[in-house]
Design a protein around this nucleic acid. Sequence first.
DNA 1: TGGTGTGAACAACTTCACAGCG
DNA 2: CGCTGTGAAGTTGTTCACACCA
Lengths: 229, 229
Amino acid sequence: MKQKEIKIPEATIKRLSTYINCLERLDAEGFQVVSSELLGESCQVSPAQIRKDLSYFGEFGVRGVGYGTKNLAEQIKKILGLDKIWPTVLVGVGHLGHALLNFTFFREHGYRMVAAFDNDPGKIGREVTTDVIIHPIEKLVEITREERAAIGIITVPASSAQETADRLVEGGVKGILNFAPNKVKVPENVTIRNVSIVSELDNLAYLLSKKHGRRRLTRKKTISRPPKL
Amino acid sequence: MKQKEIKIPEATIKRLSTYINCLERLDAEGFQVVSSELLGESCQVSPAQIRKDLSYFGEFGVRGVGYGTKNLAEQIKKILGLDKIWPTVLVGVGHLGHALLNFTFFREHGYRMVAAFDNDPGKIGREVTTDVIIHPIEKLVEITREERAAIGIITVPASSAQETADRLVEGGVKGILNFAPNKVKVPENVTIRNVSIVSELDNLAYLLSKKHGRRRLTRKKTISRPPKL
DNA sequence: TGGTGTGAACAACTTCACAGCG
DNA sequence: CGCTGTGAAGTTGTTCACACCA
């Protein structure tokens, strides 16, 4: 095991989250013990990668045997901070916002939605789930602060994403998950993660157009003429 | 400019998509020409990174001047294959599915939703947008094939994600965007992209619990005891 | 002059291969 | 013996710094 402040690859953190998922499935299928090989098979990561990822945080397995399925899931949750509950608010109760509010996964995995906000008067006051009520946008800062929300989720249209982020920061959140397609800026001490659905699709489009060979984009010598401005 | 089959970083492709976005915003703000510096500022990528990314595909700028805003956006779209229209189907019209179907961005960016599917009889036949009608799941393979859909979007619950993927493949799609939290397996010739919303949140949780220093996970010497199995 | 395009240095991440241990 | 844990090697991606050219 390493101690010290070794930098942990961002990619490792991303994978840890998927390991939890796979471990829970394997556990449900009756595996009390899993090898890095089996786990790797199940979540499409190489066994070596899994062992390396885990090694950043400690020794969780037994040599010659494998990992205790339940135990490993538990340990990873601890690593990610999912043993604590993260009070979370959501801004913008359109379809996407609604989808996220109803997402039971959150509740099971350490996040508690404590409030939702929207600027449509028709939605205000409605109860989305037992403990989430839609408040007017004007109360965002106040309620976010009151509830000590640590995380804010932005599901508003692109045009108001930045303003929403500013208010969330004012309300004291420490992290923001932004689903609006344009990136927003936040102060140093706030962590932001942008989820760009369009980017993912564009990625697919690129891979497809490359594979199913439409024209070759990089032709031999013809330099794509620099534009006359 | 490089020709040849040089491997292009996956990360580059991800960024290209965001460049389009920023270019469109800058264009709307009146910049007819942008430097890599300005564009980088706008989408939070280093200027060098932008130039390198573009250099994989050709020469799009004018030295001493910059890039033509509109032209560059156009060129990148071509690179990503967004100059073609991608017929797309969506399976699972819950809140998330609904959100995606209404997402006007798609239409503007090269994707055409040609059909949606759900297994809830109450939803069948409803018209979501002008050209999307909800069909029963049983018709998935048939309609997907008829419409020659190239892309399938999975927004069903985790439990039926794999089955849905199988049918999409049977229907002939070449790429799948999966929003279910568990990864699905597809044949070699089909491209899959998993969007894990929970992973993104977990990422935030990790960064927050590290920064706002709850207990240090990697203590000095104490080895986290390997589990007795 | 000023900003692009790019090889070369650097940094991050992954894979390999094997030592170590139950 | 088998599977973990891990340095070291290899690969992939990013930054630097400067030649080049409108």
